[in-house]
Simulated assay, not measured.
Amino acid sequence: MYRILIVEDDRTIAQALKRHLSGWDYEVYCVEDFKNVMEEFSNVQPDLVLLDIGLPFYNGYHWCSSIRRISDVPIIFLSAAGDNMNIVMAMNMGGDEFIEKPFDLNVVTAKVQAMFRRAYSYRGNTNIIEHKGCILNLSDASLIYQEQKIELTKNEFRILQILLEHAGKIVSRDEIIARLWESDAFIDENTLTVNVARLRKKLAGVGLEQMIVTKKGIGYMVEA
């Protein structure tokens, strides 16, 4: 079943879209927290986004750009501002389709269905791990936090991935080393210490000084 995320401030419109699209057997979610759209995006991991331009805090162009940093998921803009400038802007920011308000729900459904037919060689590309506002992109080994993107080395990425997959639990140094060996990355005790130190420095650069916790004599953890 395809998942659709609706990013629409007008609750009447959002609920009407949800009811209608749910009737076509789509799994539909509406964003509730417009300050943290990316957190809801990562939680839902939608197959398509319906995105209004005029939103609280940040507009739809901002969120489209944020989504495009981590995903190729189809984005359909919805807006009463259907002039050429806004349509061109929406497409340039990474949108795939533009529907002007007021719209017919059957037209929206037809466009959604057409978008799914065109797009679904991409399925599975929303390949991310989200934790407390941090988004680890498994496709390009990068971390995004508060609109800042950190490029990670192969070892740094794998260490952080392992810790995030076990958030709230201590991961022993031996387990981390064993997992890294599985990925053909040469690493020993000293190499692990150096890589964790470098990773911490990068995290501190974007305000995540306390993300990785050392459990002396055991290993490391990311708190849940």
Rank of each mutant, 00 (worst) to 15 (best):
I150A: 03
Y26H: 09
C134D: 05
S139A: 11
L136M: 07
A224S: 11
E100W: 02
S65W: 08
V37M: 05
I75S: 07
I13C: 07
G124M: 01
F41E: 01
N125I: 05
I13E: 12
E27A: 13
H20A: 04
E8F: 04
R68F: 06
N127R: 15
F77Q: 10
M115I: 13
N86F: 10
D25T: 14
I176G: 00
P46L: 01
N137T: 00
L199V: 06
N155P: 06
F98P: 02
I99R: 10
E8D: 12
C30T: 15
D33E: 09
E97Y: 07
W181K: 12
G133S: 10
R200E: 15
E156P: 04
D184M: 10
A197V: 11
H20N: 07
D9T: 12
T153G: 07
I75M: 04
F41Y: 15
F157V: 07
D72Q: 12
V196D: 06
M91E: 05
T214H: 09
K154W: 05
P46V: 01
Q146G: 04
S66A: 14
K169W: 06
V73F: 02
I6H: 08
V28C: 07
N86D: 07
V88I: 12
C64D: 08
L164P: 03
I4A: 02
A16I: 12
A185R: 07
V112W: 04
K35Y: 09
D140I: 04
E100G: 03
G124I: 02
K149V: 14
L203Y: 03
L164I: 14
Q161F: 09
W24Q: 13
F186A: 13
L143Q: 00
V206I: 15
R117N: 08
I75H: 07
G54E: 13
G23I: 12
D52E: 09
E97L: 09
R173S: 12
D25R: 14
H20E: 10
S42P: 02
K215V: 15
N36M: 05
S121G: 07
I176C: 00
S172D: 09
G23Y: 10
R19N: 07
C64Q: 12
T193G: 01
Y220T: 00
Q45I: 03
N125A: 10
D184A: 14
G133L: 01
E27N: 11
N127P: 05
I13W: 11
V206E: 03
I128F: 00
E32L: 06
E100K: 13
D174N: 10
D10C: 08
I13N: 13
D140Y: 03
T109C: 04
W63I: 02
